[in-house]
Write a protein that binds this DNA or RNA. Structure first.
Length: 565
RNA sequence: CGGGGCGUAGCGCAGUUUGGUUAGCGCGCCUGGUUCGGGACCAGGAGGUCGGUGGUUCGAAUCCACUCGCCCCGACCA
């Protein structure tokens, strides 16, 4: 491809709205352009990168015996209603009506549609196992799109689904995907860590996420440097890190604490550490039961963990509700004599003695309280892990880091096959629900995460495998070296390199800047001076190395150097 | 949904506080010429319903109301 004939609209300046590195560079490099909030156009370079990522994905999926299909994006509402996700997705799903006033949805994922296909055709244990996948556009009406292409409302996703007759079979399909995913991310130039995750709206038992560590990520993951334990903070478990100094309160008594509400204020006022305060939070379950949740003052409740105990639709009670129920404002409520349906406690308060709780009366707290003073129904782990907590596996110290989720795999089990009645007949003639898994990769996320991780102040540094072009020929003075450059271009093309030839009538500096911004891994500089003696210059984007190479050795040199890129 | 910020030429911005002739600057674009190893130079040129609607005023990019769009933070942690 000659650059002079290409559509590569690079820009010198950052777009006004772009704050994330990947957003800035992908727009400035002419890869993508914004159409609306969370909706992007892919320009030729962006499209090329996406296709290269897809090629890697297809190769690795095919390698585990998966077969590619393409399901509709425009779907009828019925299936979603059958599995309950018409409601549970709620506003996250783009819903529309056709001219007959029938409900339709733009699919945010495809468990339902894929299960229907399986139901239709997988009737016998002899038909199993199967793995089907597609690479397709998904639509999710995100409450807040973010970071350019990192969180969008229309995006390309590789999703696959496994269908097995046995639980062992599911384990195998899951393992195959896990391996394939590790290969895919590695080949696409990403270091991922696999973390235990919450399965959320997908349902099912086990799930793991593939995470790329990056400050721009919106997920928080817990990581143990000693043993490698990793989990999304939504599900991570740990031992409390900091022990509490013995309490100075020797007996239980009510203390006047005027206008002292938050844990920090109470701790300050009483002259104790926040860990000695037991926070009381009132939650209301889906069926309207009041649950008082107790947790050590220096910790936060993890609502995703709580949701795993009580179901997704649990919510924190409003201030008015609390005031009405307790006759005390939030900030002064506590577990002693509380009239609620259940009191549960996080394990963090198990070893506390003579601690402080709200007095269930405005401007009062109770000090010197012990566990036997409270009617706790059960202890559960509902605490969000903090930096410095202790690893349950090895006793090492845990740290929290931000990460971008690029893949997620689920053992779904029979949730969808049961609700959509996808049964097969086993060896003994018995009808059984197909056992399923579902597995997703965000194609655009791979692209964006790559830029977040691989860049410098000059621009993007693409890994060789997914670069928009592998080699860029920078011609310093197009009028003087046309024939020689064309010969080099043809040779590289002939040897199978994906190469672009920057033949534009621009100053050398401008071409270098563009090359660095767009991020070609290998640049070949052809100048009148050097070509006379039969040499060209090679520039390696990743290392910044520059060195002269004889024309005849160019191909072999690039071949040897690309292995490192 | 709550909070904050922004919308002026293709892109990035100034001008808005304190209303006043033809709305500026840089980059990009077009024409001609000179250049050609780090975003070249000279000369000439094109390009704007100042997000939209309504209002105040002799007069609105500027003031008021409504509205559309975009970005960032947060979404009840007592």
């Amino acid at each position: 491809m000659r650059w002079s004939n290409s559509f590569i609209p690079t820009r010198k300046e950052n777009p006004r709205e772009a704050e994330f590195v990947s957003h800035r560079y992908l727009v400035r490099g002419g890869f993508v352009e914004q159409h609306a909030s969370g909706v992007y156009t892919f320009l030729p370079l962006g499209r090329k990168v996406m296709l290269k990522i897809e090629k890697i994905i297809r190769e690795e999926m095919n390698r585990i015996g998966a077969q590619e299909v393409l399901l509709p994006a425009l779907t009828s509402a019925d299936v979603w209603k059958q599995t309950g996700r018409w409601e549970s997705f709620g506003n996250d799903m783009f819903k529309l009506k056709d001219r007959w006033d029938r409900d339709l949805a733009l699919a945010p994922t495809h468990e339902e549609i894929m299960t229907l296909l399986a139901k239709e055709h997988l009737k016998s244990y002899r038909d199993l196992p199967q793995i089907w996948y597609q690479i397709q556009t998904k639509f999710r009406d995100e409450p807040r799109p973010r970071g350019g292409i990192l969180r969008v409302r229309e995006f390309s996703m590789k999703d696959s689904y496994s269908f097995d007759a046995t639980w062992e079979g599911l384990d195998e399909s899951y393992e195959k995907h896990r391996e394939a995913y590790l290969n895919i991310f590695k080949r696409a130039g990403l270091n991922v860590i696999v973390v235990k995750a919450s399965s959320g709206l997908m349902g099912g038992s086990d799930s793991e996420e593939f995470m790329v560590l990056s400050g721009s990520g919106e997920d928080r993951i817990v990581h143990c440097k000693k043993c490698g334990y990793s989990a999304n903070v939504e599900v991570a478990a740990a031992r409390v890190g900091k022990e509490v100094v013995p309490s100075k309160f020797q007996r239980k008594e009510k203390v006047h604490t005027p206008s002292v509400r938050t844990v920090e204020e109470v701790a300050d006022f009483l002259g104790v550490e926040p860990a000695l305060i037991v926070k009381s939070l009132l939650y209301v379950t889906e069926d309207g039961r009041d649950v008082l949740v107790l947790i050590r003052g220096d910790y936060d409740v993890s609502e995703s963990k709580l949701a795993n105990v009580y179901g997704a639709n649990l919510h924190l009670a409003t201030g008015e509700y609390i005031t009405k129920k307790f006759n005390a404002e939030p900030g002064f409520i506590g577990p002693i004599d509380a009239e609620v349906d259940e009191i549960i406690a996080d394990e963090s308060i198990k070893n506390l003695n003579n601690f402080v709780v709200g007095g269930n009366r405005n401007d009062y707290h109770i000090v010197g309280v012990n566990l036997e003073d409270i009617k706790i129904t059960r202890f559960v782990d509902i605490r969000e892990v903090k930096d410095g907590d202790i690893c349950l596996e090895c006793g090492g110290e845990l740290s929290l880091e931000n990460a971008i989720e690029v893949g997620h795999i689920f053992k779904l089990g029979t949730k969808y096959s049961v609700s959509l009645e996808a049964y097969f007949t086993d060896k003994n003639g018995e009808k059984k629900p197909i056992i399923m898994g579902s597995y997703g990769i965000g194609v655009g996320r791979i692209m964006a995460a790559n830029v977040e991780v691989n860049h410098d102040e000059k621009g993007i540094i693409w890994p060789y495998s997914i670069a928009p072009f592998e080699v860029n020929i920078i011609e310093i003075d197009p009028k003087k070296t046309q024939e020689e450059t064309q010969a080099i271009y043809k040779e590289l093309k002939g040897k199978g390199f994906d190469v672009i030839w920057d033949d534009r009538e621009l100053s050398a500096g401008a071409k270098f800047k563009d090359a660095e911004l767009v991020g070609f891994p290998v640049n070949v500089v052809v100048s009148p001076k050097k070509i006379g003696s039969g040499t060209v210059e090679l520039q390696i984007r990743k290392t910044g190395e520059k060195f002269d190479v004889k024309k005849e050795e160019l191909v072999s040199k690039i071949r040897s150097v690309r292995k490192e890129l």
